[in-house]
Write a protein that binds this DNA or RNA. Structure first.
Lengths: 217, 217, 217, 217
DNA sequence: CATGAATGAGGTTTCATTCAT
DNA sequence: TATGAATGAAACCTCATTCAT
């Protein structure tokens, strides 16, 4: 990493560096947004430098969220856009990939959950709309892909995706418990502690998609 | 309201008073937990008085959440426990009551969302488990009522309820936007702004329950 | 203990009760004055009741201190006033009794030390002077007894006592460490932790009295 | 004073500045540790700035105490280490310098007294040990200088110093009265109010050292 | 571009004391 | 006399952000 990021590519590298540091710290305590000071320290930068790349603390996390959302929606599109294989229906493929994505990005749902509360609440208005519109349009596009793939009426795919994600997010928040309480003796007795998120999600999605596609109008 | 709440009923009234003030303030800015100072002011009390009734700021909100959860789960149980009327299946009745409850308690989902982040993260450990266990056991009971009503295998009802609520919570967080942005001109152009939460939720629940009950094992 | 202390003797018993509770709590954390609430609880009374017997929190501790001072100075007087035994000089007897008293009243020096800072600082003026004058006159009297016993010029005995006590108090503060740090591993390595207060005090007093009585004017 | 203390020397100046402000405020009410807010105000800084230089309020006062202790013990060492002059024995020189130091640092004994109660009780454990060990080792060194100068057996010097200081501290606490009471009419009648601390200390030290060095073992 | 010192609002909690009951 | 609910002034500390260097 250069010391003075004058070139555009160096700047982007530095920006990524900051994002990486923020993510890393967030993973250590997923109910709190890490302090700017600690992000800077982790990135090997001074506090002020972080503010050369982001206007606001929340902007950092909004950027991270956007990045993750893009990745997820690309995954979704791929599930439906890829050439048909006759053994796997695109829906089963979608559920599998969706669940795998969330499983391999354990911070995503935590992040999004905290994002609803902490990030959206403090994001400067402009930034907020940019963030939301990026999300909405990526979602639209993925929804259209679903429509095409499954020959649904326009807009149905988007609904399906929104609800699928709603299920995932809602389940997560119901089942997740703060790390610091995992060692507590009472944890073992907590009935919801033994539910496996991944299995639960797959099962819920199957039920939901089955219902959505078979329910008479 | 008496000045000195000596009698047990007066104490409860005061406690409720504080909870009411907290809720009222929360509704004005649903992404932040109001400060204790403002809760006290709203309730017409001194800051210290609030701490006579609650040990911790988070305890106030945990109490509010518990109270809401109890009300919701009682509603759910009622949907399934009441004598069968042949025109409405218990499921349709459940969906209707569930949606109505959330519609008439607009803060509930916001509250629960912020609760996941702010309340759980800072609640003293003991209080946390009391809170969680109350939730889990009320949920268990409601789940059993569903099992009985629909003649399901044990534990299925609880799953159905968890997923129903997950859907509600997840949808809410996807569709909700901070009040302060409702007046923004860009709001009108935001595609997800025009989706009606109540309708969306009912539709999603119908799809889900239909799927859950018809999906071959 | 009666419920309503109307009779004078009942009142005094209640007052003593409060003093006892205060002392007991103080012994558990000798660097902080216990809270009035905890004193009341320990005494089985309501907070307000304590204020029927003492105007101020500090008054409680001033009363305790006075009581201890009286006991100590009586002990001192006894050392010098008792009939001569030829094997023990009154000085050796004084040192022994003085050290024993402090050893068996472990809270005295702690109390007095904290008293200098916390009690005197907040005692209402009138109360303060009553407290100080009681001390000064008891001291005077004891000093005169020393003068008589040792045939010293007037006022010398008081000096000797003041300085003896100064040595005790100063040594205590130098050697004492907060309880919470006694378990710390670093405690073992702290050179002053191994000095025995009682032995140190006896030795210091012997040196001092020897010097005071032999130093040529 | 520069506005931004980047250079090391500027930082030290600022630190000293804060210490000075703390000391100044302490002198105005020697029984209470001043609030951080007032220290900051006095130093012309924001509250947060103070916390850039000290982790804790108590650390400020521990630093002041350490500084004073170093100065005092250097003075002590100098008394004994300087080349012999035949008119003044090192002991007389020590007593003179010691008394002068305390006379010209009127806050030292007050500070140390309040330190015993307020600082030690609340200092974070690590900081506490650093503080105590600095004291113990400076004391050890000074004690060794005394040993050498007076040809005493090892460890005797330290004892002599501890007891000398105990005498000073104890006398101070016995004779000192809160400023606010100096104007009180009753002050004039208080017998201990007329005792001059400096004279009393010198006399007590002479007696003690004479005794310590002449007492047969 | 990079730094990191300075800012200061903001928030929680404690507790001596009062006073209606 | 006894109670204990109510008070509200402190006090400490954090941290996002600014800005002189």
């Amino acid at each position: 990493m250069v010391r003075y990021a004058h070139a555009k590519e160096d700047k982007e590298a530095r920006r990524d560096n900051i994002l990486g540091a923020a993510l890393c710290l967030f993973l250590q305590d997923t109910r709190h947004l890490p302090a700017v000071a600690s992000i800077a320290a982790k990135a090997g930068l001074a506090k002020g430098t972080v503010y050369l790349y982001f206007d606001t603390k929340e902007q950092i996390f909004a950027a991270l969220l956007s990045r993750e959302w893009d990745a997820l929606l690309m995954e979704v599109e791929a599930s439906f856009a890829e050439p048909f294989e006759h053994k796997a229906s695109p829906i089963a493929r979608f559920i599998d990939r969706f669940a795998k994505f969330l499983d391999s990005h354990p911070y995503f749902l935590r992040f999004d959950s905290i994002g609803y509360v902490q990030v959206e609440a403090n994001l400067p208005t402009d930034e907020f709309w940019r963030f939301k519109e990026a999300f909405a349009s990526a979602l639209d596009q993925a929804g259209r892909t679903v429509d095409t793939s499954l020959a649904l009426s326009s807009g149905t795919g988007r609904h399906l995706l929104i609800r699928s994600y709603a299920l995932a997010r809602g389940l997560w928040q119901t089942l997740d418990l703060p790390e610091r309480l995992r060692n507590d003796t009472r944890f073992a007795n907590y009935p919801l502690a033994n539910i496996d998120f991944d299995a639960e999600l797959r099962s819920a999605l199957q039920e939901y998609w089955h219902g959505a596609l078979t329910l008479p109008v």
